[in-house]
């Protein structure tokens, strides 16, 4: 039993980090632009498909895999610039409901585009040989790829934390989140900063798509599945809060992998129950104290 529990815990940590990789960009866009982007999962999916295509050219290997993921991040960031110009900028001033619906339209366009470009077939990719296989810690068996995901999640988290709380750009972005108008008055180029945030967030989505590619079967449904979980994590963690998103993602991941213990026979239910409870208990997020 305890072995099973430990196994579920490690598994949950991996699932949680996967959710966080998607949620990070989502919460960043919300924190700065105040847009809850339903389409984020769609761009994540495009990143996964791009990585899949790049890998077919590059071949196996950890370096190739990382390169393909990064390239996917760059391409998706480019798509992000266009999307920002055409859509996001105009959505900023609308009601919340219209933002949700507009970005949902964007998600549909992403799904449709993926179907048109890559077709309806399911694909699967195995992890690069360096991180495939398992490690043994006594009785505990952990897949190397799980550890890789957890490590990548931590890298992204600390990079964002460092940039936001320790670098000059973080100070600027924080001031932008607090008061865009005043930031503009102080002579900073607000539209340019918005574009910068969108680029980072979309690059994160594309990168996450690449890094998580070997974890699942690649299909046009991928966008929907991840959107919902990342959405939940962002809302539980507090909109715009990166640390909150990490904690919420881990809670959700562990809940998900423990759900067979908590509510047997109803896979996937526990995550929603936890979410509903947290929505009532802490409607403004786990760490409510404004944007960070």
């Amino acid at each position: 039993m305890s072995m099973q529990l430990t196994f579920a815990l490690v598994n949950g940590l991996t699932v949680g980090m996967s959710i966080f990789l998607v949620a990070a960009g989502l919460t960043l866009v919300f924190g700065i632009l105040r847009i809850l982007n339903f389409a984020h999962g769609g761009f994540f999916m495009i990143g996964a498909y791009l990585t899949f295509s790049f890998l077919q050219v590059l071949g196996d290997g950890l370096a190739q895999f990382l390169l393909a993921s990064l390239a996917a991040g760059v391409v998706v960031a480019g798509i992000g610039i266009v999307t920002d110009r055409i859509v996001l900028r105009r959505l900023k001033d609308l009601d919340e409901e219209y933002m949700l619906i507009g970005t949902f339209g964007l998600l549909m366009v992403c799904v449709g585009a993926v179907k048109l470009i890559w077709g309806l077939d399911y694909h699967s990719v195995s992890p690069p040989s360096e991180v495939s296989g398992i490690l043994r810690f006594g009785n505990l068996i952990v897949s190397k790829y799980s550890l890789f995901i957890v490590a990548m999640g931590l890298v992204v988290f600390f990079a964002l934390e460092f940039a936001i709380h320790r670098l000059w750009i973080g100070k600027i972005v924080q001031s932008l989140a607090n008061d865009g108008w005043m930031t503009g008055l102080l002579g900073l180029n607000v539209p340019l900063l918005f574009t910068g945030v969108v680029i980072v967030a979309f690059a994160l989505a594309g990168l996450a798509g690449g890094l998580l590619l070997p974890n699942q079967s690649l299909s046009p449904e991928l966008g929907h599945a991840y959107t919902l979980n990342a959405f939940i994590a962002v809302i539980i963690g507090g909109l715009g809060n990166i640390r909150g998103a990490l904690f919420a993602s881990l809670i959700l991941g562990i809940t998900e992998s423990m759900s067979s213990f908590i509510i047997p026979g109803m896979p996937g239910l526990a995550i929603y129950v936890v979410m509903i409870v947290l929505l009532f208990a802490r409607p403004n997020g786990l760490f409510h104290r404004g944007v960070s």
């Binding site: 619906i101 339209g105 964007l106 549909m108 366009v109 799904v111 449709g112 048109l116």
Partner: peptide
């Protein structure tokens, strides 16, 4: 046309909202 309907519908939605 697999995919086309999503692109059309999603595009229409965006046009409507915007």
């Amino acid at each position: 046309f697999a995919g086309l309907s999503e692109v059309v519908v999603g595009g229409i939605l965006l046009v409507i909202v915007l």
